[in-house]
């Protein structure tokens, strides 16, 4: 072997590190995505199920039919709501544990993680017991005479949103907590030393430095709620249709595999666009992180 080929081989050896990931990702992630996309270009037939074709008809339908547009609007609206509310709830909590829960931090973070270890189905049944017309919440409010008739929460949008905020709250807390934990104590002191009030410290120091955490929180909760199947299906209102159950229904009840694939591709495109946009947003909002 000549020295030249040895050198050029050496240049490629670092790529060996990605071989295991590529072996898993290519056949089990990338290829199915290609198949999904290919399926979305097929045609659905009531009798013959999916018929091979090469047509954009499903995309045209999904993007022009008010029914599907409503579906996207519902899903994006609900996901946005869940992302914003979960992040707003998570923010002060994360600040509190990052600053004050010094000795109990392990316990608190464990308590935050904890629900992630419990199957979502179990949590959903818990919420069903709480939210039902004759459930715990209504029984309590009726007994205390806050209500005359029970609140309709279960199988309504409200119940689904409550369940989703609960489900995704840990995903909002952890990145925020992480971002805030990284803000040195000295910066709080420096801000106060220069004359900032406690709320000024949060406004001028904690908030801008936690922007990357906020964006990750919003991303994770938004993407989670956007693609959630279980909660819309089990807690939600069938009148308020969400994307993931709709895809499932297209594929199973309607036997419209191509349309289901189309909706899935559109959801994927939307999430990728969202990640790109938020990446850009972070860059714009945090110029100091990339300044060299």
């Amino acid at each position: 072997m000549t020295p030249g080929t040895a050198a050029s081989l050496r240049r490629w050896t670092p790529l060996l590190w990605i071989v295991p990931a590529a072996l898993v990702l290519l056949p089990f992630f990338f290829l199915p995505l290609v198949l999904l996309f290919r399926n979305s270009l097929n045609r659905d037939d009531p009798m013959l199920l999916m018929v091979p074709d090469f047509t954009a008809i499903n995309y045209i339908k999904a993007l022009s039919d008010p029914f599907y547009l409503q579906l996207f609007a519902n899903t994006i609206g609900a996901a946005l709501f869940v992302a914003v509310i979960a992040t707003i709830i998570a923010y002060p909590f994360s600040y509190f544990i990052s600053r004050y829960a010094r000795r109990s931090i392990g316990l608190v973070v464990w308590a935050v993680y904890m629900p992630l270890f419990v199957s979502v189905i179990v949590r959903v049944f818990g919420w069903m017991i709480v939210l039902a017309d004759s459930g715990l919440l209504n029984a309590m409010l009726l007994k205390l005479h806050f209500l005359q008739t029970p609140l309709r929460l279960l199988f309504e949008v409200d119940g689904m949103l409550i369940g989703m905020v609960h489900r995704y709250l840990p995903l909002a807390i952890l990145p925020l907590f992480n971002a805030m934990k990284k803000i040195p104590d000295e910066l709080h002191r420096a801000s106060a030393n220069l004359g900032a009030t406690p709320s000024g410290v949060i406004r001028d120091v904690v908030f801008p430095l936690s922007v990357p955490g906020i964006v990750i929180s919003l991303q994770l909760t938004f993407a989670g709620a956007l693609s959630d199947f279980v909660l819309p299906q089990v807690l939600g209102s069938p009148r308020f249709r969400m994307l993931a159950p709709a895809i499932y229904a297209e594929a199973t009840t309607n036997l419209s595999t191509a349309m289901a694939a189309t909706l899935a591709v559109l959801m994927l495109v939307f999430i990728i666009a969202l990640l790109g946009a938020s990446g850009y947003l972070v860059k714009r909002l945090t110029p100091w992180m990339t300044a060299r």
Binding site: M128, A132, D133, S134, R152, L154, F155, E156, Q233, V234, S237, P238, R239, P245
Partner: peptide, 19 residues
């Protein structure tokens, strides 16, 4: 219509609970 059930078991549970 109170709601539309997405799993037959939901209908059974709602009737059983008296909702």
């Amino acid at each position: 219509v109170r709601t539309f059930y997405t799993d037959p078991i939901q209908a059974s549970q709602l009737v059983e609970r008296g909702d």
